[in-house]
Every structure is written in structure tokens, then in C-alpha cells.
């Protein structure tokens, strides 16, 4: 067992884990973050995506002991219990989710993408949006609503900036 201190969603906590333990399992079991979902555990579906220092990473391909001295963010920190983040709200209005199992992974992958587009003040094409989510599998929606949600989140922000 190894003692490590992880900074998760802005709070540091020390836990005792086996070196082989996956970040996904430690976040789910030791930090009680049930929004981290495991879809394949071999790095192919993106369900378990979290952010490490703001960058989307697969928590099923990452050992917890690799994650000291970084900032880990999960879906729970995005918009709180009411899911108020602009991308979460856009997923809701555009029907970008059905069963919800892949959804946290998509949110954690696409939120930084939305930020990048907003920083560039640019509306990407549908092809670009689809490419940005090519590491995540959704089995329910056929991706249509997710593409619309990304477009809406970016469009609403660009629109309100233009109006301001």
C-alpha cells in the first residue's frame, strides 16, 4: 500500500492505495465520486474521462499513484448538483443524453473544447465538433443531440458576448 495525497475538485485528501489501483476506482470508492463511470476499462470508450490539470484523461488507464501534484476534476465539480454549467444545460435542452452513462465522460471531454472555441471566438463546423468527441462512445443518442449541445453552448456564449 502507498500513501498518496490527491487534489480532487479543489480538495486535497490523503488515501492509502495499492500501486496498481486505477484512478477511476480510487475516485469512485475513496472519494465517493459516482459520476466517474467505467465503460470498458481498456481506454476505448471515454466514459471514465476526467480532467487532469484541465486536460481530458482516461481514469481507467491511469494509476492513482501517478496523480500526486496534479489537479483532478470530475463531473461533480462542473455545475454542482443542479448541473448549471453551460454545456450541461445545453445537453439538457438539445437532448444530448438518454441513459446518461457516457454523459459525464462527454462533458469532461467537451467542456475544455468549448472553452477553447470561446477563447478563439469561433463556431466550429459540425465535422470539427464530431472529431472533438471521437474518443467517446455514446450508444443512445446517435451523437446528433451532443453536436447540437456543443453548438448551442458555444453559440449562446458568443451571442451574449456580442450583445454585451
Amino acid at each position: 500500500m502507498t500513501e498518496i495525497t490527491l487534489a480532487v475538485n479543489g480538495t486535497a485528501k490523503t488515501v492509502d492505495v495499492e500501486p496498481r489501483r486505477l484512478l477511476a476506482d480510487v475516485l469512485r470508492n475513496d472519494f465517493n465520486l459516482s459520476g466517474v463511470h467505467i465503460g470498458c476499462a481498456h481506454g476505448a470508450c471515454g466514459c471514465c474521462t476526467v480532467q487532469i490539470d484541465g486536460v481530458p484523461r482516461l481514469s481507467c488507464l491511469t494509476f492513482a499513484v501517478q496523480c500526486e501534484n496534479v489537479e483532478i476534476t470530475t463531473v461533480e465539480s462542473m455545475g454542482g448538483p443542479d448541473a448549471t454549467h453551460i454545456l450541461q444545460q445545453a445537453f439538457k435542452s438539445e437532448h444530448g443524453l438518454q441513459c446518461g452513462y457516457c454523459t459525464p465522460g462527454f462533458i469532461m471531454t467537451l467542456a475544455p473544447y468549448v472553452d477553447t472555441m470561446l477563447a478563439q471566438r469561433r463556431m466550429p463546423s459540425d465535422e470539427e465538433i464530431r472529431e472533438a468527441m471521437s474518443g467517446n462512445i455514446c450508444r443512445c443518442t446517435g451523437y446528433h443531440g451532443i453536436v447540437s449541445a456543443v453548438r448551442k453552448a458555444i453559440g449562446d456564449q458568443l451571442g451574449s458576448e456580442a450583445a454585451a
Binding site: R28, L33, S34, G35, V36, H37, I38, T74, V75, E76, M78, G79, G80, P81, D82, A83, Q88, F91, K92, S93, H95, L97, C99, G100, Y101, T103, P104, I107
Partner: peptide
Amino acid sequence: QRFEDVRLLSGAARYIDD
């Protein structure tokens, strides 16, 4: 818009492994 979405989007949903 769906009422079930908030718990699914916020990570509060409870699936079998939870």
C-alpha cells in the same frame, strides 16, 4: 426538457456499480 437529466448530468445518478 427531461426531468431526469439533472441527476444524470451532475453525476448524482446511481447505477448498479454505485
